[in-house]
């Protein structure tokens, strides 16, 4: 599929529209339509949709558990599964669970759209939209450091196992202790790293001047304005129909 190059601000606008619609609407058909549109846009923008979804498989279990727990506590509607006189699952509960899953999927797919731009581009877009540079910089740092934390966590789990501790075999109480052992150095390392980063930023005269200029400026093209207009009209039409 030919890649469409659009400005990150256009993508942010699309994502804002999709996720807002996803949060406003409650009926399943509307949510399915919004999700389908989000998937189509993600594919049209040549995003690595399949790889992101396959990575999310690990979260599928958690999402399902939350959905089931949520549906169990909804007592409205006709009982589908009951234990004596106690209704465990109702048809409305199931509908609500499906609603939750669809809503979450819309947000996830919307975020996939943003992955077609680099984190630097997104930050630049936010700055040009008026977000203070300091806050945008904080966002960029948190995005940049996430993979580092992931690597660090993986290395520490390996190091722990190499001490002869089999995480699969130990008892729950001891397993909880091992999480403490893992979280402690990771938190300490993060604080140390943040301190080093702050010093390095001071050395580079961060915030020395009240106004910053950017080497690279984003520019909206005709296609961007066209896409934003179509998105707004589409969202408005959707609101009128549903």
């Amino acid at each position: 599929m030919k890649q469409i190059n659009i400005d990150p601000r256009t993508k942010l606008a699309i994502v804002a529209l999709l996720s807002t619609l996803g949060l406003i609407y409650k009926n399943l058909l509307s949510l399915v339509i919004i999700l389908s549109v989000a998937i189509l846009i993600a594919l049209a923008l040549n995003s690595n949709f399949i790889s992101v979804v396959s990575r999310l498989k690990k979260l599928l279990g958690l999402i399902l558990i939350i959905a089931i727990i949520q549906s169990i506590f909804i007592k409205e509607g006709n009982s589908v599964i009951s234990l004596g006189s106690l209704s465990l699952l109702t048809d409305i509960g199931i509908m609500k669970a499906a609603e939750f899953i669809l809503r979450l999927m819309i947000i996830i797919v919307s975020s996939v759209i943003l992955t077609t731009s680099t984190s630097r581009e997104i930050i630049q877009a936010l700055i040009q939209m008026g977000l203070p540079y300091e806050i945008a910089f904080m966002v960029s740092i948190s995005i940049r450091f996430l993979p580092l934390f992931k690597d660090e966590m993986r290395d520490m789990v390996v190091a722990l196992q190499l001490r002869g501790i089999d995480l699969k075999k130990i008892k729950l109480k001891e397993k909880l202790l091992t999480y403490k052992y893992l979280l402690l150095p990771i938190t300490a390392n993060s604080i140390l790293r943040a301190r080093e980063l702050a010093t390095a930023m001071e050395m580079k005269a961060f915030r020395a001047y009240p106004k910053r200029t950017s080497y690279r400026m984003l520019k909206m093209n005709k296609i961007d304005y066209l896409i934003i207009t179509i998105s707004l009209i589409g969202a408005w039409t959707f609101i009128i129909i549903f």
Partner: peptide, 13 residues
């Protein structure tokens, strides 16, 4: 096994 960077194999207080 002793890693090149010891920080990643120290866990306690």
């Amino acid at each position: 096994y002793v890693f090149q960077y010891p920080e990643r194999q120290l866990f306690t207080t």
